[in-house]
Design a protein around this nucleic acid. Structure first.
Lengths: 145, 145
DNA sequence: AAAGTTGTAACAATGTCTGTTTCAACTTTC
DNA sequence: GAAAGTTGAAACAGACATTGTTACAACTTT
């Protein structure tokens, strides 16, 4: 299985908001054009980012802007904002291990902490990168084009 | 999204093969009983583990056994054996970023290496745990019950 | 030859992701 | 105050992946 493309779309969206936000109103329609993602999905993602306190949106007049400093938003924050698997974690467990089997009734005790550690390793790596770096890298590439 | 439960089922299956393999013939039916996973799925998982060189199975007579030493099988090996996302990676990218937009045509350059690093962090953590540890922990818990 | 097992294909049921349509609520502008 | 453009949100459809199920050929042992 794969992690939903809403995550990369969200990073793309936030980068656009920062880069184009100064000179124009960044609407869901504009973001849909840049990302290639349906405008309703864009609004959906913006809604999740708003709930996470990462962006602000304006109903009626339209447009979105960042609600935090660039270096206070990590890829992890974005990942968590659009992630739908909060409760159950990254790994899915087979659901009915047999309690009558010594292995079946203990497999969770043995595996759970290790799965959590692996998930934490992924998440900690995502925490290393801020949106400030993403935007800086993007601007640099654009300048060098 | 979540990682398929075939991974935890595979760990469960391999643990059973090691723990019960000495005293009995470990068939897909037995493994289905312990894991609660359908016997055909068990055979499917065993087939993937066999292709990865982790187990041997016997057609006709039935039963499975490990093909490698316990400490030469890591959770990563098992993960990769049953993983179906080899080609595209753990993260899914939104598919049609707009090449006419400066951000759209460069988002891959900025993000790809970071997504690969995060995936590597997860996988490296899984490499830290061998099946030997899983089996040892399981046996210890069973003894203490 | 009989019984039990694996390997595999085909299909169904379920769930998730993404897109689409639709419309009420809101803000700005005229 | 009306018009135009936008957001927020619900409802539904299509595509795809996962898991379970059925069925059966091939194989091994007794």
């Amino acid at each position: 299985m794969q992690i939903t493309s809403k995550f990369t779309a969200a990073v793309h969206i936030l980068t656009c908001i920062e880069i184009f936000g100064g000179e124009m109103r960044v609407t869901s329609d504009f973001l849909s054009g840049s990302t290639g993602v349906n405008a309703v999905i864009v609004r959906n993602v913006l809604g999740q980012l708003r709930e996470a306190g990462i962006v602000e949106t304006r109903q009626g007049s339209g447009g979105a802007n960042l609600a935090k400093a660039l270096d206070e938003i990590t890829l992890y924050d974005i990942y968590k904002a659009v992630d739908c698997t909060d409760d159950t974690g990254l790994f899915r467990f087979h659901e009915n291990p047999n309690a009558k089997c010594p292995v079946g009734r203990n497999i969770h005790k043995v595996m759970d902490s290790r799965l959590e550690a692996a998930q934490a390793a992924l998440e900690n790596d995502l925490k290393r990168t801020t949106l400030a770096k993403i935007v800086a890298d993007t601007k640099k590439i654009i300048e060098d084009e």
